[in-house]
Design a protein around this nucleic acid. Sequence first.
DNA 1: CTTAGGAAACTTTTT
DNA 2: GTTTCCTAAG
Length: 636
Amino acid sequence: MLSGLNLEQKAAVEHFGQPLLLLAGAGSGKTKVLTHKIGYLIREKSIKPHRILAITFTKKAAQEMADRVERMLAIKPRSISTFHSFCVRVLREDIAALGRKFDTKFIIYDQTDSKKALKDILKRFNISPKELDAVQKTISKAKQAYRGGIVEYILALPFPQNQYAEAANTYQRELEQSNALDYDDLIHHTTHLFVTRPEVRGKWQDRYDFFMVDEFQDTNEIQYSLIKLLSARNRDNIFVVGDPFQTIYTWRGAVPENILKFGREFNATEMRLEKNYRSTRKILDVANIVIGKVDRIWADKVLTLRTDKEEEGEVEYCKAAEHDEENRRIAKKIMELASTKTRSYADMAVLIRMSFLSRGLESSFMQYGIPYEIVRGLAFYERAEVKDLLCYLRLMSNTRDRAAFDRVVNTPSRGIGKKAVEVITGNFKTDWIQALQDAGFSARQRVSANALISLIMKYGAMVEEKPYTVLMGLIQGLNYLEYVKEQYKEDHEERIENISELCNVLLSIETKGKTFSEFMEDNLLASDQDRISMGESVKIMTVHAAKGLEWPIVFLPALEEGIFPSERSLESGAALEEERRLFYVACTRAKEGLYLSSAGYRMKFGRTSQMLPSRYIGEIKESYFSFGSDSSSSHL
DNA sequence: CTTAGGAAACTTTTT
DNA sequence: GTTTCCTAAG
């Protein structure tokens, strides 16, 4: 269990009997430690595999850990999951104990669903839609803080946030009515359950003997509380891993100080991994230069990455006149590297600060015939035609789902517009079928409403088990393909392609015997990383999505003030610190080659504006090398 | 209630 | 350059 580990890694694996805080730098082999630790606990400490709860940041990380453990021990560990999927597991079992309208078939609202719902509510409360993001953020903050009631928490905030309390309350009631939870609710309601229902808490506490949390710097306040609650009966059997310098999620509530808090409150032993096994020397030098200056509270936690690698590796910076040229140069470099036989396209990734940057890269890669793949969120499931159809299935599966109802009720148009929907909403008692039945309509609307009702009722009973069959019937019943041809004249072929792809996906779900709800849940809890294919292609993705991953060759384009660091971060010191950490994360993804670049001019909102090279370039140049000032491309 | 057309707003980062 | 919003005619 200890073979192939260095001294520090070994010490962390063998440590037992007291909480352990492991500060693990980028590429220092922390996944190795985590998996060997699981193996060690099972083999040496006779802890049952399913009694070890390991929390990771993404499903992909969980999957990878589970695979490695399985290869090592031929045992499939069942309790490696993300915070969100762990909470889903708890709630599927015990949500009734909350004493609300939810039942175990609750659904999860994604960002779009919850934004739509909230937008509607804001109208009713005469709050400007401009404040939508602020309201959503406030609600999220209230849920993450977990100080009793959400409404009370918001009321206690300063103006104008305290004005959002009523809207927040309505939002929560609507979610409940829809049997729906948003991402924050998953964790909030679970914690609430554990706090208020000792018997539920006790049951879950007793299920586990050992706790592990990865990426601890990215936990938020409520996740910390949740872990503390869960481990209360086994306070010594907890192991957390983190790196304060890879904190890149404070904007969504991550509290890196949780690392310090954990050290204090759990009286944890602290260990470090500073030896880097990933990157060559030049790459680490660059990363260390940029991360050099950090907040004082972290002064004694600084990890300086070291390597024994003989190879120097390559770091290059290239300044192009404008973004098209930059993209062309990247494409050329990729072609050049790929032609050497030692490199394949799959060895390379382009990491970007903002997703719109992928467009230019995409068109230049297309021109050069470079196989590429843009890794991004739910793109496919967000296509209008795909979402329409899925919302029909959602509504069949859960006739309380308001977001699905709103989308479906008049798509394709059936004469039930805004006014009519208001009438229906006023009639809502138990579910949308009932509301449709009870609404007073004109004769024509009655006919369409009844058609919709019978369509939903016809398939309602079988949608879970036979989603593909239902989808096919639905497309027929709605004459949906005709509607798409009519509605989207220009690109209807592509859209029909998408629908056909959706059919394929649901067919495979149906053949595998998975239910529709399981399929939806999988998708909603998946991370960007879960959508990366193994294919022979250059991956283009955001730096955030690349966290925890590595490639031999990494390109970092658009290193310009206003892009990286981003425009919005320029006003705040804390935000700039986070940009710096993000840049550090980006650099440390590379094993052998790191290609930095910027452009002098870039298109923004369809206008060309002048750009200055990022401050990070300046810092690297200054402390690293003599640099031909006119040369457009330099080796470091 | 629907549709078409033009204006306005818009880009961080995501489980 | 693209998506969303708004208005007015049918």
